[in-house]
Amino acid sequence: MNKEALRSYDDKTHIAGRISMISILVILLAVPLAFSLHYNVFPNIKLLDLGQLVGIFIMFYATAIVETIAYTPLLGTSGMYLGFVTGNISNLKLPCAIAAMSKADVKSGSQEAEVVSTIAIAVSSIVTTITLAVFVLLLRPILPSLTAEGSLLAPAFKQVLPCLFGALAASYFFKYWKLGIAPIAVLVIVLLFSGSIPVGTLIPIGVAVSLVATHLLYKKGYV
């Protein structure tokens, strides 16, 4: 594969990604607009407590910038355009892509990795979309019995993340155990001081600590 062909594939991915993402943004904003027009109701900004709203907007937008920067080297080009549209990146799309790349034994950042991670994220998005649609549209009567607080399956749903990341950690940490010590140790210490820090905040801290520690280990010749 020559460089020019590669560049043209990557350029086309950006074009397709941009068009699809902007189109979905328009559709997303058209939903509340359609409701406003259909029922002739529009938010009266003067009556809203804007202080509270500005607070969450700042929080969400800052998170979006941090997540965009943090996930760019991990998700690949198509993965970024796809993953950010369907969301649940850190708890679903990214672990799914990491697992697929690890199993396929492809080098991160390579063309093969881009293919494998795109397939994983696309399949994961399709499965999530179908699962949500099927449960919401067809299985509504039995939904509460599956997911309600006291149901048989509810305890397992609460522990989805440790169950998912345990398997991922077992695979990854055994391969790179030297690199895993610093981020886990630092994050556990951080949580001992402030246990309620959400995982969305812990991820950029973990990634930053991990990168610095790996760079130092590399310089000292341990990697």
Partner: peptide, 28 residues
């Protein structure tokens, strides 16, 4: 070698966040 280690380490940083939360996080 440096690039490979750094890309693995970014994944490990992400995984660590969830592992640490399961070890020492406070509930909601």
């Amino acid at each position: 070698k440096w690039t490979d280690a750094m890309s693995a380490s970014a994944f490990l940083g992400l995984i660590s966040a969830f592992i640490a939360r399961s070890i020492a996080g406070v509930g909601t």
